[in-house]
Design a protein around this nucleic acid. Structure first.
Lengths: 137, 137
DNA sequence: GCTTGACCCTGTAGTTGCTACAGGGTGCAT
DNA sequence: ATGCACCCTGTAGCAACTACAGGGTCAAGC
């Protein structure tokens, strides 16, 4: 499989594949006589693992740890569980932040009734730093 | 006000303040004889506006537009409303994505009962690219 | 008067996770 | 032989900061 085929097979940008190789997430593949990268099924599987992990929001370093664990099936999987659980907590925290954000944005936008910027509630609310979160630190 | 005081007054990193000045979000302040930046109340207000906008997730370019509008109170505020409304839609989309993510992560983690990585459901699930989202494109 | 420490300056490079060239080589069909 | 699609390396760019390195300034204390 050449890099273009692997790209299509996994929905990964070609440049991204080469990037993953450069940072050591994917092993260097064999080369053809013309110096083209030549991939096998194992590469495809590994790249799919990486892409799926990334889509779930794991950082590159977390993916590295997860891959490392996948490469050593004799180890305990508690590390994988720990990474995933911590990540879940982060996702939940982010959701909470975004919900707060959404509410504040809705509140701000709701007050806008058009007219001149001088009277704009959106701009006014942004300039007002004594916000509803009570952050008086 | 020197840059350190402005930093404390707005909860903004000093380097960030200088960065904002460099990219033209904040005007260049006057300088003391020792070439120290000297800020007034208007700077503080403007920086607070920028920080608040950034906390709400507006991009720098969006903040630039909002500031521009705040600087021209004779204009219509529909642009501000448009920016904020579009941003709200993006936040809502992001929340939806993260909720999907959270559910998938929960599902994966819920199946982990410890033991060896060889049997780890987390790692198995990451490797499995035929996921529940039915993405067969 | 001299040092210590906190503060300030500029300029550049690093971060994350890619993405986009520039400038070239290869392979196959017409 | 001439397109064209594909591949190669290496470097630079993106957002939005953050972190130095290497220097200057200022007030307080000995």
């Amino acid at each position: 499989m050449k890099i273009g085929e692997l790209s299509r097979a996994t929905g990964t940008n070609i440049e991204t594949i080469r990037y993953y190789e450069r940072i050591g997430l994917l092993p260097e593949p064999a080369r053809t006589a013309a110096n083209y990268r030549s991939y096998g099924e194992a590469h495809r599987t590994r790249l799919a693992f990486v892409r799926h992990s990334r889509e779930l929001g794991f950082t590159i370093e977390e993916v590295r740890s997860l891959l490392d664990l996948a490469d050593h099936p004799e180890r305990e999987c508690s590390e994988a569980d720990r990474i995933a659980t911590r990540h879940l907590a982060q996702v939940e925290e982010k959701i909470g932040q975004l919900v707060t954000l959404r509410d504040e944005l809705s509140r701000i936008i709701g007050r806008c009734r058009g007219g001149l910027a001088a009277d704009c509630r959106v701009i006014e609310a942004l300039g007002d730093h004594t916000m509803c979160n009570g952050d008086h630190e």
